[in-house]
Each structure stands twice: as C-alpha cells, then as structure tokens.
Design a binder for these strands. Structure first.
Lengths: 357, 357
DNA sequence: AAATTATAGCGAAACGTTTCAATAAAACAA
DNA sequence: TTGTTTTATTGAAACGTTTCGCTATAATTT
C-alpha cells in the first residue's frame, strides 16, 4: 500500500547527503562547522550548503539534542506574571536570552508552592539547560533548594539570596534603598513618618526595614511604633494594594498625625494613596508618599510616585549572564562556584513627595 | 582508562529493564500505559513501577520526542511583555496550558517585525506543536501569514482577525465595547465628548471608532471633529500614556470645551488624566474619563478608571482550547477548520465617570 | 485431543543526529 | 624508491525511546 499523502514530512540529513553526493557524516560536519570541517575543501562545502538550502533542510532538534544533550533552552519560573515587577525582570531576561539564542520556557507559580514544584519537575524532565527563578518568598528555602541541588542544574535566583550560598543570586540593595528613601523624606523636613512594612514572609521586608532602622539610628530620627503597620502575610501579592488600603485606613483611624508615609513597595503605595485621598488628605500637599520598586505604572500615577527604583531589566540581564556562564562551565566540566550580585537601587523623585510646609 | 567520575549521568529505560528483570519494550509499555499494557498482569506492572521509582527513572524527553514527534510545547509570541494587556492574556494562556500539561516557550517581539520573524523561525525549528500569537498590529498581514501557512503548524491569533480566514482567532467585540462606552457617557448626560482615537495601525482602533460612530448615528449624538484627536502611529506601545498626555494637551489648547473624554484604551486614559489634572480640570467632577481594556492598574488609580473590560484571561483560555483542539486534530490527521471567536466586553463603572452637573 | 484464541513478553528496527575510527588518496620527506 | 604526514571522506555506532511482529505459554473452544 503506497502512501499517497505527503512525501515524507521532513527532509533529513540523508536527503541532503543524497542530493549533494556526499555522506551524511560529511554533511553534518560541514553544516555544523565541526572541527573536522577544516579538512573539507570549499567546493565541497559549497555544494553541501547549496543542497541543504535547496531542500529546505532544518535539522531535527530532537535528534540533535538526543546526541548533544543540549537544547538551548532555559526554564524561567516566576511567582506571578501579573505582577509588574516580574514583568520587567522578565523583559530583561528575555533580551539577554535572545542575544544568546536561548529560548525560555515560562512557568508561573501563582505564588503557590505546589505549582512551583510541579513546574520545577516539568522543567527538569525537559532537561532545560538552566533555571532562572524569580521569587522572594521564604518558602523557597524549606525544601526546594534541595530539589535544585539534587537536579544539579545551573540555577540563578532573582530577588533573594538563599541561606546556603550554593546557588547564584541577583538581588537589589533593599537595605540601602530603604535607607535612601527615608533619608529623602527626612531631608524634606519630615519627622513624623508612617511606615507600612511588607509581609514577614518576604525577605525584602526585613532588609528594607533594617535600612529604615539604620537611618533612624544614624540621625536620631524617632520611629513612632504607633505609626508602623504591617501588611498581612498572605500569599496573594496582587492584592497588595487592597491590603494596603485597609491597613492605611486603620492607621488613619488611630488619629495619630504624620506628614509622610513610606510604603513597602509601589503597590502598597497605590493602596495607601487611595485611602489617604478618600480621607481627604491630599498627596503630596498634606502628606508625602514614597514607594519602592518603580514598577511600570508608578510614573503614570497622578501624582507620579516618588520611589526607589530597582534596576529590574539589569537584574534580569545579570541573572542570565551568570546562568549562561554556569551552563558553559558545566558543559566544559569546569565547575564554577556560585556568584552573588547585589545591585544598587536608585531614588527616583517625582511628584508624590514634597517638603513639609 | 576508567571513568572515575559519576556513574552514567542518567538512568535509562534499559536500566529499569535490567533492574526489574523485564525487557525494555515491556517497561516502555507499562510506563506509558500503552494499549498493549492491557495484557500485562498487575504483578509485572508493579515490579516495573517499583524499579523505575527506585532508580529515579525519568524518560529522556529528546528520545521520546524523536520517536513520537510530539513535545507538549507550544510557542507563545507576544508583542510586548511589558504591556499589562499582554500580561493578563498570558496568565489566561498559562493557566489553561498548565491544565493540559503543556509548556510554553515565550517570545517577546518588542513590537519589532524582525524580532517576530526571528522568533517565529526559532519556534518552527524547535517544532513546537502549536503557536499562540498575541498581536494586533497590522504588519502581521503583510508577510507573516504566509510563513504560518507554510509551516502548517496549528496557530491561534489573539487580538485580531486575519483577512484570510485560514487562521483561528480570538478577539473581543471592540465595536460593541466602544458602543457601550459612549452609551454610558451619554446616559450620564454628556453631549460634548472628546475622543482620543488609537493609532491607525491597530486593527482595534478602527473597530472601536466604528462603535462610536454607530452609537452617534443611533442617537443623533453630534461628534464634533474638533474634539477628535488621534494617537500617533508609532510602534512603541508602552509610550502610549505619554503620547496621550501630549495629545490631550493639544486638545486643551484648542479651548473647545467638553465634559467627557473617551480614550482609546486605559493607557491613553492615564495620560489624558494627567494632562487634565495638570490643567486644573478635576476628574470626574469637571470631566469624566473612560478607557478600554481594564488593564491591571486601572482599578488602582485615583480615581479608579471606568472602562470597558476585555475578558483577557478568558481570551487566553479560549485561544488555548482552540489550539489544543487543532493540535489533536492534526495529530489524528483530521483537519479541523479555523475557528473564530469574538468575546463580549463588559462595561466596568468606577469612579472616573460621573453625571454632568 | 486438537485447534483456536487470549495473554505475556521479547528482540530488533527505527526516529535523525553526531562522532569516532578507519580508509584512501595526495603531498611531502628521506 | 619507500615511508610519513596531511587532506578528504566515509561507514558504523551510539544517543534513549517506542512500535511492530514474533514467539511461547495458558486458557478456551470445538
């Protein structure tokens, strides 16, 4: 019984071999410019190239990977694609990956541990060459670390450092950023400053608060405990603004006056801004607000948000370069050690902060 | 020379075969629950499963794909990951893909045609099983369509319909949405309404404007040409708000009064809002604003933006279900025809619109 | 008792590459 | 001339699966 349909789905290297009159091995050598290609005369190369082109030959990537164990793919696991913070880092990652001709497999953990683990498993099964993890949740430590080490797959974590130094990381200087944020408010004359601290489960919460404390100590600024509130510790990051709204309303209910508010991050600042506005407090005339991150919509707000910018694209790029280095090291059987980069943040002064009257 | 390092990188099906005492073929049949597995007694199955587990066997996906020509991967090409519109659709896509145990390879075209094409090529080389394209730019038509048809790979486009009906699509009812947006303003008593129309290169621009026109005709609403301005036709979507800011300032300079403004989309609305505020016009007291999309930060704004919501997660999910269906159809050699779904939009009334005084 | 069918399992081939050892001719050295 | 090196090309093996056809029992029917 003859197959009437299509004449063989895809053209293989042997087709090219036949067409060009050389052996498959020769074709492979030429097309990959393998070491042995140095013995092959230009004429031969040309004929093979031509044959390949004329047949529209595309090497089968599965076969290729099966042999070489490489697939030029890295896994990217992030905690919430919906979060503009993730988005910008992802952009940085993508740009760099593109330059290196790597492709990214995307996984969104939805802030759920189970999902994270499932995805991790899927990526390992796919034998991605490396892993980029964008997560600042503490749960990462508990068990997943072990998974990574077990998998022995090059990994870089963005957003936090793991306790064990074995895995590379890219972080931002949260402490320094927070320090400069309070410093900014202080320099504008603010002394009664309210704080909305981040969820305890976030590693950056601690660091940022430490920065505040350090500044307070350095300058004898008084931190009024009645002006310090915490964001609840729930996992739904995208609800950050709503939580902040509630928390700020409670803060206001306590009738303790303040002239500036420092929010854990931009989302928090948005929520706080809404609460203040609702209470008839104008920003920045009556109260200044400062955020953290410089997430995408922050500069669009009215008033545009003063904030501490994380160099998110740069962070993504840094993570990629670390990862690629680790991958090539692994491929050559060198074993590079983990590298940790902490990038500086940058104060971005916009409209939401103003000197105290 | 003995290899002292690690004893064989990965455990293969033959290892499991040896360990369990059966042949590799049997192991394969059991582990995949292939049709033939029905003849295999439970005891055997159990032993094989056990062996596999104890050795920590993970099938090599390259070998698997090489045989089966399937890899449970789809390519997702979007025009700008930074755009919150993309982000939400991506979330919808990801959710559905996850349920089907598909993984996504992510490509961000940065609104550049060359990048789009390069990525497309990379995906085809990787033999993704299907393609999800999120793009509303017109340039898509010019040439790329041909590429897709050539590749004969199942594809669904989100955000616009191609002129040739050959490729499946998921769109939103732009016209109806715009219609209901003006209708909303009208019902609040607004008669002098300004419009910022979208870039001409966007297919949705036309459709939305058509909706406006239809409403105007239906109700004899007068569309004052001096209150209609266009966003420039440049490719940088993320600059949308800035463009809108400029355009709105020009509009204001013309001193032609209006009580409401309908923006092409939410980003545009943000820019307009800023311009109005700067000019001392309060929203919504002095002027109402309505957007389109209901992009993530819209509900966070102060005032929260009234807008027309696109069911973005649903759109992503719809695209995936269409795609998966097409993929399975192709796998079984049935050839399903392209399907086109147009989803309804939904008016979301928040704080930025108010009855005319 | 013989013939048939259902049940269990196996070996070999194939998927499309790349790499390695081998061969053969040409170029060079002695 | 003979022997050695360089140049040019190749066949075969391997990567780890899945599938197909085959065999060999065991169970069932005639």
């Amino acid at each position: 019984m003859k197959k009437l349909t299509s004449k063989k789905a895809s053209v293989t290297i042997r087709d090219v071999a036949r067409e060009s009159g050389f052996a498959a091995s020769t074709v492979s050598i030429v097309l990959n410019n393998a070491p042995l290609a140095r013995y092959i005369p230009p004429a031969t190369k040309a004929r093979i190239q031509k044959a390949a082109k004329s047949l529209g030959y595309h090497p089968n990537i599965f076969a290729k990977s099966l042999r070489s164990k490489r697939n030029h793919t890295v896994g990217v696991i992030l905690f919430d694609i919906t979060d503009p913070y993730c988005t910008l880092i992802l952009r940085g990652i993508e740009k760099s990956l593109y330059q290196e001709s790597y492709l990214a497999i995307l996984a969104d953990a939805h802030n759920e541990r189970a999902r994270f683990e499932r995805y991790l498993e899927m990526m390992l099964e796919r034998r991605v060459e490396g892993l980029l993890v964008l997560a600042n949740w503490l749960y990462l430590d508990i068990n997943v670390l072990a998974d990574l080490e077990r998998g022995k797959i090059p990994t870089a974590i963005i957003g936090r450092e793991l306790e064990s130094n074995a895995t590379s990381s890219v972080t931002v200087d949260d402490e320094g950023g927070a320090y400069s944020a309070v410093a900014h408010l202080y320099s504008l004359g603010h002394r009664k400053i309210a704080f909305i601290r981040g969820p305890k489960a976030l590693s950056s919460s601690k660091a940022r608060w430490k920065g505040v404390q350090r500044f307070a100590k350095d300058t004898k600024l008084d931190l009024d405990p009645r002006l310090i509130v915490d964001l609840p510790d729930q996992l739904n990051l995208s609800a950050g603004a709503d939580d902040a709204f509630r928390v700020t309303e409670e803060l206001l209910k306590m009738k303790r006056s303040f002239t500036a508010l420092m929010a854990y991050d931009d989302m928090t600042a948005f929520g706080a801004l809404r609460a203040l506005t609702k209470a008839g407090i104008r920003v920045p005339q009556d109260c200044s607000i400062i955020g953290f991150d410089d997430v995408n919509p922050s500069h669009l707000f009215v008033p545009a948000l003063t904030t501490v910018r994380q160099p998110m694209e740069t962070m993504g790029a840094a993570a990629v370069s670390i990862l690629i280095e680790a991958i090539t090291a692994a491929a050559e059987n060198r074993s590079g050690s983990a590298v940790h980069r902490k990038l500086p943040s940058e104060l971005v002064i916009r409209e939401s902060t103003r000197a105290v009257p």
